[in-house]
């Protein structure tokens, strides 16, 4: 079996985002780029599955659609333990474009289990995984919190309202993951960092695809009114404000 983990390259989650060009572009000065948190957890789970030799996994590959600037992030995934990487050399303009490029790369390949995250922490799109599955005509399972392999099938735990459901799906399948898929992201050890330099990072030129959506501009959240403080000795005053001023209880 072969596993593919799709990774997106996003600003570190503590970044205070700022915009330039009349709020049309992200100001990238000083931004630390990281593997999207969900994808880091997917990669961790993929490597756990590979570590269990009974699963018989030949390789874990990471794929990214993006320009050369994203290579440090891809190398980080290799350092964590992915065997090799693919980068499609295109600006990831929207989810449709990204999914189409990934689908094109996968056409001639035979990955059994494909991981995507439930969303990228930049555009919060929740789109690429489902789109990719549909383009390849593979089944997809969303809101996934665990994946196991049994008898050549994927046994997947997914979140439903108020609980969980365990489903089995034949491979190839796209698992769109969320919380629980791995406890802590695996981190790169020194040896991994050394080895990452020599692992294969294949660069593929994109096919012609137009984006279907376009960001016009950005806005900052409206500043919230200053916090009103209530005497800690008298929380009754808070209840009074919630009832009569905010009118919510």
């Amino acid at each position: 079996m072969k596993i593919l983990v799709c990774i997106s390259n996003v600003p570190d989650t503590t970044t205070k985002v700022k915009f330039i060009d009349d709020f049309k572009k992200l100001d990238i000065t000083g931004i630390q780029w990281v593997i999207n948190p969900w994808d880091e957890l997917s990669l961790t789970r993929a490597l756990e599955l590979k570590d269990d030799t009974s699963n018989n996994i030949q390789s874990v590959t990471v794929a990214h659609v993006g320009l050369v600037g994203a290579e440090p992030t891809i190398r980080k995934a290799l350092a964590i333990g992915a065997d090799d990487a693919i980068r499609v050399n295109a600006e990831p303009a929207d989810a449709w474009l990204v999914a189409s490029q990934l689908a094109n790369v996968l056409k001639g390949e035979s990955y059994d289990l494909i991981f995507c995250g439930i969303e990228s922490s930049d555009f919060n799109g929740s789109s690429v995984g489902g789109m990719l599955a549909e383009l390849l005509n593979y089944p997809s399972v969303s809101s996934v919190s665990n994946v196991k392999l049994e008898n050549g099938q994927a046994v997947i735990t997914r979140e439903i309202d108020g609980g969980k459901e365990i489903v089995t799906v034949p491979v190839p399948v796209v698992a769109i993951v969320q919380k629980g898929i791995a406890k802590e992201p695996r981190i790169a050890a020194m040896r991994g960092i050394m080895m990452a330099r020599t692992k294969l990072l294949k660069v593929i030129e994109p096919v012609a695809v137009d984006s279907l959506t376009e960001v016009v501009n950005y806005e900052m959240p409206k500043p919230r009114a200053a916090c009103k403080f209530v005497d800690p000795e008298n929380p009754g005053q808070l209840v009074e404000l919630l009832q009569n001023e905010a009118k919510i209880i």
Partner: peptide, 9 residues
């Protein structure tokens, strides 16, 4: 989230 991206394609 499970259906919309597939519908989009």
């Amino acid at each position: 989230k499970a259906i919309a991206p597939r519908l989009s394609v």
